[in-house]
């Protein structure tokens, strides 16, 4: 489809500028770790949306691949090298991809309810390992007290350099995932979400497509998890628990990942900010967290940007309806 690439239709530049100047904004700029958290969750939600929004696969265990990345970073810093995080982050992405590659193969033919439940099951396997295997993962207490060191010789120890380090990785991720979503594969994914049988009879091996995109998603989820570990300098097994996967689903849905490429970023920004604010002064904030799911599903299932898409679609329909009436009765016979 040919669309004019103006800023309104592709808010990439806005997002870039907002995150670029964030640390210097009044009032909120000083919460650098929150800003970093937003960037990390945007990476995670964007990668997750390749599975949920593009392919229509209701994964509910993606938090596990995030967690795998966190542990990969924590363990390499602990046992391999604590001076440089390069290898750690590469391994975080690698293991995120390896686990999704392996598991994607097992569930590539499953859809709908089965897909959801099997992703939950896999996430739980990793959780039990993380929780019980004390001598490696630290079990219940997790791994703490890590050092961030440098990245290829660049010091990323202070919060602001780390913020910009994550920012660069965020921009790269955004560009790569945007590239994929505009590629033939991006179209194939959208197609198999709408009518998989049709896509198969056009000759697409949709199972393999699902398997591959699940893996790609896992690579970025692992990277996000690794960055998260570096931000908090720790790894805990509860990030692997299936209920934690609700977070990324929430972020993606809330922003409108089902309808718009940038939905996950919008959702991640709103969700993480709300979580940070609420959980800091209200013990029972989970009550609101739970109710938010209910409200989203009942009232805005396509998310915030989904509302924009719906208005756009209405215009689209009206436009062609007018065209039709102008052309005359050609091709307009409707069956009731």
């Amino acid at each position: 489809m040919k669309t004019k690439n103006n800023i309104l239709q592709d808010p990439y530049l806005y997002i870039f500028i907002i995150f670029l100047v964030y640390p210097f904004l009044p009032y909120i700029g000083k919460y650098r770790s929150v800003g970093t958290e937003l960037l990390i969750w945007s990476i995670f939600a964007l990668s997750f949306n390749l599975v949920l929004g593009y392919s229509g696969l209701p994964s509910f265990g993606h938090g596990a691949f995030f967690g795998v990345g966190t542990y990969a970073v924590a363990l390499t810093l602990l046992h391999l090298t604590s001076k440089d995080v390069t290898i750690s982050l590469i391994l975080a992405a690698f293991f995120g991809g390896l686990f999704t590659f392996f598991y994607g193969f097992i569930i590539k033919k499953k859809r709908g309810i089965y897909f959801s439940l099997l992703t939950v099951a896999f996430s739980q396997i990793l959780y039990v390992i993380g929780f019980r295997w004390d001598e490696v993962t630290g079990g219940e207490t997790g791994i703490t007290g890590l050092q961030r060191g440098g990245f290829l010789g660049i010091q990323i120890n202070n919060p602001i350099t780390y913020y910009y380090f994550v920012f660069v990785l965020f921009v790269i991720t955004l560009l790569v995932i945007r590239k994929i979503s505009n590629s033939p594969v991006g179209k194939v994914l959208l197609a198999l979400k709408q009518d998989e049988k049709r896509a198969q009879y056009l000759g697409f091996n949709t199972e393999r497509q699902v398997w591959f995109i699940f893996t790609i998603s896992g690579i970025f989820a692992g990277l996000a998890g690794g960055l998260h570990g570096l931000l908090h300098l720790s790894a805990f097994s509860d990030t692997l628990h299936w209920t934690k996967s609700g977070d990324v689903v929430m972020a993606t849905l809330l922003g409108g990942g089902l309808a718009n490429f940038y939905g996950p970023i919008v959702g991640a920004i709103i969700f993480i900010s709300a979580r940070e604010i609420l959980s800091s002064f209200w013990d029972n904030w989970l009550l609101l967290y739970g109710l938010a799911f209910v409200v989203i599903i009942l009232f805005i299932p396509t998310g915030l940007l989904g509302i924009v898409e719906r208005i756009r679609e209405k215009k689209h329909f009206e436009q062609f309806n007018n065209n039709r009436n102008n052309i005359g009765s050609k091709n307009t016979q409707e069956i009731t």
């Binding site: 949920l52 209701p58 509910f60 959801s116 209920t243 609700g246 689903v249 849905l253 989970l286 009550l287 609101l288 967290y289 739970g290 109710l291 938010a292 799911f293 209910v294 989203i296 599903i297 009942l298 299932p301």
Partner: peptide, 13 residues
């Protein structure tokens, strides 16, 4: 996913 999420959210709340 909607059924899953709405019951999940209800349960958490």
């Amino acid at each position: 996913l909607f059924g899953l999420l709405i019951t999940f959210g209800f349960a958490i709340a």
